[in-house]
């Protein structure tokens, strides 16, 4: 008795799976936004006058980058309620993705900032701008442009990592797929299809990243 493929199950469940895709995209975009904020703030703080702030950022990056995401999300999910912060699975997932992606974003963006010629910063100071203004108006955009491919690559990773958020049953594609699978026992068909749905999501994001790059980072350089 061989296994007979039956994709009709997947076909019937397609609307549910597509909603799962929407869930994944929403989770990923919210996570990226948070990661971006943490990344930029972290890079600025890493260069702050206050030594404790610099140490905090370094420690944060070390811990997050050297521990598994699954453990991090469980930690947030089970530890936060102990200090009275009860969050739903989706909020927990967004925070976990944002914190995790943020730590990587700090390291990537920092590389971009270091690639900026120091004459740019000096020109800003000579014009009477303050340190924060120099970072915000002069350094940040060229720095982001320099590392844009690495950063967007990391954000694709973040999107794929969101599948782990099924562990706390956040609403996203993998958890939706798990439910369909346990209802139908069509494991291969479901995960085969989900693979391509993830591929589609990644391609969609890449199109978006390219459009953003075209809009913001297309100024000419020599």
């Amino acid at each position: 008795m061989g296994y007979t493929l039956d994709f009709s199950v997947v076909w019937h469940a397609m609307p549910t799976l597509l909603w799962g895709c929407v869930g994944t995209l929403a989770l990923a975009l919210a996570g990226m936004t948070l990661a971006m904020m943490i990344g930029v703030a972290g890079v600025a703080a890493r260069d702050a006058k206050a030594a404790w702030l610099r140490a905090f950022v370094i420690g944060f990056v070390e811990i997050v980058r050297n521990t598994p995401f699954l453990v991090q999300i469980f930690f947030l999910f089970f530890a936060l309620p102990l200090i009275g912060l009860k969050l739903n699975p989706t909020a927990t997932a967004i925070i976990a993705l944002g914190v995790n992606g943020g730590a990587y974003a700090i390291e990537i963006i920092r590389g971009g900032v270091q690639s900026i010629h120091k004459g740019q910063v000096e020109a800003g100071y000579a014009l009477g701008l303050h340190k924060g203004q120099v970072f915000r108006f002069i350094v940040l955009k060229p720095a982001l442009r320099a590392i844009y491919p690495s950063l967007t690559g990391q954000f694709i990773m973040l999107t794929l990592t969101s599948s782990i958020c099924s562990a706390v049953s956040a609403y996203e594609l993998t958890s939706v797929a798990q439910r369909i699978e346990s209802d139908t026992f069509r494991s291969f068909e479901v995960y085969f299809s989900v693979t391509f749905l993830y591929l589609g999501i990644s391609w969609l994001l890449m199109l978006g990243f390219a459009a953003i790059s075209h809009r913001f980072f297309s100024y000419p350089t020599r």
Binding site: G119, A123, A126, L127, R145
Partner: peptide, 17 residues
């Protein structure tokens, strides 16, 4: 002081963006 002093650099240092 920086309000009163303008500077021009060897490598121009214009902001490319």
């Amino acid at each position: 002081v920086r309000q009163d002093v303008g500077m021009v650099f060897q490598s121009f240092n214009l902001f490319p963006h």
